[in-house]
């Protein structure tokens, strides 16, 4: 442990007050250096100064939390059993579930599963609470809509084939395993 208290070095006031043009030249040299460096990169063919959005996408890390979606199994049904834990854990109460019963072996399924994306804050607590790996934070970030009603996502819109969520399910299995 070595924490020291040091005084900040205050550059002498006389330097720039005597020769202000010197400090300004120095600043101009910094921005010129940036300009020349970028120009050199551009001439050598580097094109990644800007990302042309709809055609190009940012490379996001595997930890990315996008919009929550429901996993759809191979038989076309959801994995969710309508236990309501995500509804309970959601800090902003943006999830609404009405459960119903079915003759399958899981016995329960959500008849209505709505997520109000205008309230959702992408915190990922629903995913952490889910005991079935049924609600998963996807990599989808484009959720804009033209109307307010359009930001209420119903079950049919939320279902995503589970194979497309592999990055995230791998991440969950690796990191939420304690």
């Amino acid at each position: 442990m070595a924490v020291q208290v040091v005084n900040v070095r205050r550059p002498a006031a006389t330097f720039s007050s005597a020769k202000p043009w010197l400090a300004i030249l120095k600043g101009m040299w910094v921005s010129t250096r940036h300009f020349l460096g970028n120009l050199g990169l551009f001439l050598r063919g580097r094109q990644d100064f800007a990302i042309h959005f709809p055609e190009q996408r940012l490379v996001q890390p595997p930890a990315l939390r996008g919009m929550p979606v429901l996993a759809r199994m191979a038989d076309g049904k959801e994995r969710c059993v309508a236990c309501g834990l995500c509804e309970w854990a959601c800090p902003t109460s943006c999830i609404t579930i009405y459960p119903a019963e079915t003759a399958d072996e899981v016995e329960r399924y959500p008849e209505i599963f709505d997520i109000d994306m205008s309230r959702c804050m992408f915190c990922g607590l629903c995913e952490e609470a889910c005991p079935e790996e049924a609600i998963i934070m996807s990599r989808q970030l484009e959720i804009a809509s033209y109307t307010r009603a359009g930001s209420l996502w119903h079950k049919a819109d939320l279902l995503v084939p589970v194979e497309q969520l592999k990055t995230r399910t791998d991440y969950i299995r690796r990191n939420y395993e304690r």
């Binding site: 442990m1 924490v3 020291q4 040091v6 005084n7 900040v8 070095r9 205050r10």
Partner: peptide, 26 residues
């Protein structure tokens, strides 16, 4: 773990905006 790390705490003398700026730099 701050007790085990090696770091300096910068302090200023003049208590003006420039010192606040310098403390943030450091």
């Amino acid at each position: 773990v701050y007790g085990e790390l090696d770091f300096d705490v910068p302090v200023g003398r003049h208590s003006d905006n420039f010192d606040r700026y310098l403390v943030r730099l450091e």
